[in-house]
Design a protein around this nucleic acid. Structure first.
Ligand SMILES: [Mn+2]
Ligand SMILES: [Mn+2]
Ligand SMILES: [Zn+2]
Ligand SMILES: [Zn+2]
Lengths: 147, 147
DNA sequence: GACTAGATGAGAATGAATTGCAATATCAAG
DNA sequence: CTTGATATTGCAATTCATTCTCATCTAGTC
């Protein structure tokens, strides 16, 4: 139940990161960052726009898209391109985590798997590459419940 | 240098699979399947349309999209939704393979990794899911070549 | 050869994302 | 605290991939 609309140590950090990148700290950018910071799920650009308007009314969707691009290049957020649906976004911690998408209802479950991440690094390294970003999406179906 | 436009044991197999699924075997569907069958890369729908028109002139792009959906549901092909670009398609063998996308030039390299696939199954199973499909995309940068 | 459900072609429509441009706001400098 | 340079924004129009509508066509069946 933390208030997503107020400054906090976490969001203040965002401001610093923007400045360090030579970008201006605008109310729109902070509102979007706060929205992502308080999101438990993986919202789409338009969902982010809707929530961000709660703290800073009338943020245009053009600004949302532009800001999301900027933040992604900055490495602050991650974009998930799922099939047949608009892209979804999340703040990134520095973990390489994967997503299970329930093909039944679209639920997204996150998971971390050290072995998998290690494999990604190794596979890329073998081919002379250095990992920039990994996307793992496991589309899966709920198994018939036990008993 | 095999001719992609002629029937072959492989493409005859496609016809059988279509019939078994209760679908009609049309020249358009076969042309698209042959195109994918001879593709070394991961073409987009429009690229597929262009090549398929070589064997069956004037296949509409609507038909290409419709056919690709049908073939995907049938499990004959796989759709890859990469970021910031139209979807790409490939025939699927029954292997769960991943893709390394060179962030420099967009090159797509395929890889198979038994350990990784096993992890996918295990992770899903742990959460009570059964894998339908896995997408692994490793965006990576070429490492400075040795000497 | 005729019938019929399924498939196609042409183009309009949709929806996500991007862009041009004039107006606005950030922030460094004075 | 002002000012000015310029990054950023809002709005609307635009692009682009993909989907849809519907009249026409065709594969498969008898
Ligand atoms: Mn969501
Ligand atoms: Mn290609
Ligand atoms: Zn996530
Ligand atoms: Zn592939």
């Amino acid at each position: 139940m933390t208030d997503a609309l107020e400054p906090s140590p976490k969001t203040d950090g965002f401001a610093v990161m923007l400045r360090e990148a030579g970008l201006r700290v605008t109310s729109q950018r902070m509102a979007i960052l706060r929205t992502l910071s308080s999101a438990e799920d993986h919202p789409t650009a338009e969902e982010i726009a809707g929530k961000a308007r709660g703290s800073d009314a009338s943020i245009s969707h053009a600004t949302v898209y532009r800001t999301l691009s900027v933040l992604e290049e900055l490495g602050l957020i991650r974009k998930l391109s799922l099939e047949n649906s608009p892209a979804r976004y999340e703040l990134c911690g520095d973990d390489d985590h994967g997503h299970i998408v329930d093909v039944g209802d679209g639920t997204i479950i996150e998971f971390e798997d050290e072995a998998m991440s290690a494999r990604h690094q190794a596979i890329a390294a073998d081919l002379g590459y250095e990992v920039v970003r990994c996307v793992t999406i496991i589309e899966a179906r709920k198994k018939p419940g036990p008993v």
